[in-house]
Amino acid sequence: MKKKKMSFETRFWAAYEIKDPFEVFEAFFDYDHLDDFKQRLGELMMYSRRHEIYDQKYPGRVFIMYAALRSFVRACYILQLKSGKRIVTEAVAPESVLYQASLSVEEYKNPFLAFINAFAVQTLSDYEFFLCEIAHLSQSPHIEACDTDLMTPYIHLIKMLDAAQLLRERD
């Protein structure tokens, strides 16, 4: 039986289909900076609990961010499955806590651990649902009841963003 490869669905935001998860990271961080993604993700979280609509002048930006983050999460998922086959450039413990951002010391030394830990807590479909939910809630003028935990996937997504940036810098 043939193995079915997962599509990263990058054509919505990168304008072409990417097959390699590391290339997804490259295109993702070329599309926008890490700080901008983290800031907008935090803003989406805040607006999901407000009566205001996030980015009313250009609401399509939320869809593009959703699509880019969905591709990013899929790339992280594939990499955590293959993490045993990858060798990471060994890093010493950071001089300052600021260098490791949201990562623990172990995750800073081996960024694949951030992906493994994230998918040990939540499934890929949980992260995709989280992205869809915050995109939906941030575009709604009403505060809607959300019966799912939004903080856990948010925290792990921030860690995955930091880990991906580290992998990009080291390799």
Rank of each mutant, 00 (worst) to 15 (best):
E169C: 01
T89M: 08
R61I: 12
L81D: 10
P141I: 04
S7H: 10
P94W: 03
E26H: 11
A91D: 03
E43G: 01
F119G: 02
V62G: 01
V105P: 00
E106C: 03
N110T: 04
A118Q: 03
Q122H: 12
G84C: 09
G84K: 14
Y66Q: 08
D149R: 09
A135I: 02
E169F: 07
N110D: 12
K85R: 12
F112V: 00
T89S: 09
D149N: 15
G84L: 13
S125Q: 14
Y47Q: 05
K3I: 14
I158L: 15
H136A: 08
V73K: 03
A91M: 09
G60N: 14
Y66W: 14
Y127T: 01
S83Y: 07
E26C: 05
Y31E: 11
R50C: 03
Y108Q: 00
S7L: 12
K38S: 11
Y31I: 10
A163T: 01
T89V: 13
E169L: 10
Y16R: 15
L137G: 00
M45Y: 07
A91G: 07
R49Y: 07
A67Q: 15
H33E: 15
S138L: 04
H156Q: 11
S96W: 05
I155A: 11
S125P: 02
P111I: 04
C146R: 12
A145T: 12
F115I: 05
A145Y: 13
D20G: 05
A120N: 08
A68W: 07
H136Q: 03
C146W: 04
A15N: 14
E23Q: 13
S125F: 13
K3P: 05
L167I: 05
H142C: 04
D171M: 13
Y31R: 12
Y77P: 01
F22H: 10
G84P: 01
D36G: 05
T10M: 07
D30G: 06
I64Q: 08
D30V: 08
I78L: 10
F37A: 02
Q122S: 09
D149K: 10
I116M: 00
A135T: 06
A118K: 01
S102R: 13
L98T: 05
C146P: 03
I155C: 09
F112R: 07
A164V: 02
P141M: 04
R86Y: 15
A163M: 03
P153M: 06
